[in-house]
Amino acid sequence: MDAPVYYSKAEFIETDTGNKVSRRATIAGPQNIILGGKTIISSGAIIRGDLRRTGPGHAVVISLGRYCLIGEGCVMRPPYKTYRGNFNYYPMKIGDHVHIGANSVIEAATIGNHVIIGKNCVIGKFTIIKDCAQIADNTVVPPNTVIPALAMFSGSPGCFIEDLPESTQEMVEAQTKQYYTRFQPLDR
């Protein structure tokens, strides 16, 4: 196993389900955000749970699966549009084993399982990313794009580059689990 990634114990809050959330992350409307467990939210990240769908009852704005990583300085906000003349924000759903690199801006509608997004990416509104897809660093994905399973996207605007091997699922799963175990507190 690779060397552990240490963080200062004072900075992160650990929940019962193993989520690790930085105190330096900005989380608006936390009652509308669901974390699946063993998810890491790094410092400087901005998560907008306050931009909820209008209407009565409880609305989930952002749901994240297990073993996710939100990199430093990432912005996650739900997409918006007008539908039949009414303006609304729509929920964002993210699967398990999703890693998002530092300083990326995510406004996707759905992100599947085992997806890896690089650093400095811009994922446009209502993008749908299917399982096991990968997005290279500095990619700008235009709004309403559908990224198929096992595809590698890169460029500005983001385009299909290559197919990924079928072993991607196992590789990403192992990688995300290993990252979580490597992410260790440093007492001081």
Binding site: N120, N138, P157
Partner: peptide, 13 residues
Amino acid sequence: ATSDSAASGSNVI
């Protein structure tokens, strides 16, 4: 931005 700008992989467009 056009495709060739970021395809070069540079972090400066």
